[in-house]
C-alpha cells in the first residue's frame, strides 16, 4: 500500500515525471489511482475498449501480442498510452509476470493531463522516440 506522499516520492524518481515540482507530483499522485495485479493477471487486454494508462510503481509486466511475448516492462516504465492516443483498442495484452503495482489514469483523462503537464508530454514523446528508434534499428 502507498499513501499519496509515498507515491509522489516514487514518481519523483521516474524520468517521466522528473520535471515536476513536489506540489505537482502530489497532484499527480491524487489524480492517478493505485492498482495491484497478482502474477499472471492481465492488466491490458488486446482488443477490449476502455483501457487506461499505467505507470509501473513496482514489479514486472510482459507485453504479449497474439500469445507471443514482445517486451518486458519494469518500474518507471509506462504502457497503455498508444491505444489511448490513437483512440483504438490495445493491440497487445500486458500481463503481470511478477506482482505488479501501477498508478492508473483512465484513457479519457489522459489528453487533459498531458496538456496540463507539457513537460510530462515531452518526456513521453522522448520515450516514444526511443522506442521508435530501437524498433527501426531492430528492423534494419
Amino acid at each position: 500500500m502507498a499513501t499519496r506522499d509515498e507515491i509522489a516520492d516514487a514518481l519523483a524518481g521516474m524520468t517521466l515525471f522528473a520535471d515536476l515540482s513536489t506540489p505537482q507530483l502530489l497532484g499527480v499522485a491524487g489524480r492517478f489511482e493505485e492498482a495491484f495485479f497478482p502474477e499472471g493477471q492481465r492488466v491490458l487486454r488486446q482488443g477490449l475498449s476502455g483501457s487506461a494508462f499505467h505507470v509501473i510503481l513496482d514489479g514486472e509486466a510482459a507485453v504479449v501480442v497474439d500469445g507471443t511475448q514482445r517486451a518486458t516492462l519494469t518500474r518507471g516504465e509506462f504502457f497503455g498510452e498508444v491505444s489511448i492516443l490513437l483512440g483504438e483498442q490495445p493491440s497487445a495484452d500486458v500481463v503481470a509476470t511478477r506482482p505488479l503495482r501501477t498508478i492508473v489514469l483512465p484513457g479519457g483523462a489522459v489528453e487533459a493531463f498531458l496538456v496540463e503537464h507539457p513537460k510530462v508530454m515531452f518526456r513521453m514523446l522522448q520515450a516514444q522516440a526511443r522506442r521508435l528508434r530501437n524498433a527501426n534499428r531492430w528492423r534494419n
Binding site: 500500500m1 502507498a2 499513501t3 499519496r4 489511482e33 493505485e34 492498482a35 495491484f36 495485479f37 497478482p38 493477471q41 506482482p99 503495482r101
Partner: peptide
C-alpha cells in the same frame, strides 16, 4: 494479504478471494 492504495484495500481475485 497484499493491499494497495491509500485505503489499504486487499488485492482480490474476480471472486473476491485474497489474491495472495
Amino acid at each position: 494479504v497484499a493491499t494497495f492504495g491509500q485505503s489499504q484495500l486487499p488485492a482480490q481475485t474476480a471472486f473476491w478471494e485474497s489474491a495472495t
